[in-house]
Design a protein around this nucleic acid. Structure first.
Lengths: 115, 115
DNA sequence: TGATCATGCAACCGAACGGTTGCATTTCAC
DNA sequence: GTGAAATGCAACCGTTCGGTTGCATGATCA
């Protein structure tokens, strides 16, 4: 029944892997949520209330930065972290695109098998 | 400037972590894409063309199953894997929700700092 | 019924991950 | 200028992850 087997399908941009992987961690998701609610925050502020060390927070922030989800800016002796507007919008669009892909897949699947 | 510091923000459902983590891998993303395009496939079919062993594919499928993204059904001596319609729709809705959350955050951020 | 094809199960392995601790560096505040 | 606060850097550690190999089990077909 499958239309093809060996074709290697879509290209899978590396960015998407980075994006999903960055969000696929409880602590990081909490950090994002936190930055969503309470504007730009320093590392020590973010550490307050979290049950992990400051260094752990730092590492997570770097992962999020690697995915382009957050940005930092030095501000005196502290560094303020915030969500990255533009990249975030891109991510939203990308997720929407994935969704529509899935929609297409749904339609195609319905024609295939109806459980 | 931040409105609060110690509040622990949103609850972060465990499902979302599972979902993102499952999609945060190049090989798994490729598998999903493949299942999207060419209806239900067996493990051996999925292995054909991939550069990893059958067992590796099996493991990845289990991760995707853990996130509720795929399902399998025995069919004779082979097991056919396909995307999970209903769960997939839930995931889409969830991603949309995240997006809107981010929209709100954007608006709030603009009031905060305009780079 | 016996060979074979598709899976399942389990052990193993190196690398990446999440986390910690200790120490160096920068900057503010007095 | 000196001390404390905020961050950066680096090494270390146990666990999980992605992957492999080898062998057992189950189903099909001649």
């Amino acid at each position: 029944m499958p239309r093809s087997l060996s074709r290697n399908a879509a290209p899978i941009p590396n960015e998407s892997v980075l994006l999903f992987a960055a969000l696929g961690d409880k602590t990081r998701l909490r950090l994002v949520s936190r930055l969503c609610e309470d504007g730009p925050l320093s590392i020590t502020m973010l550490t307050t209330g979290a049950r992990i060390s400051r260094q752990a927070v730092t590492k997570h922030l770097r992962v999020l930065q690697g995915a382009g989800l957050v940005r930092s800016k030095r501000h005196g002796r502290e560094r303020l972290w915030q969500l990255h507007h533009q990249r975030l919008a891109e991510a939203r669009r990308y997720l929407a695109q994935i969704s529509s892909q899935w929609d297409d897949a749904l339609a195609r699947l319905r024609k295939h098998v109806e459980e």
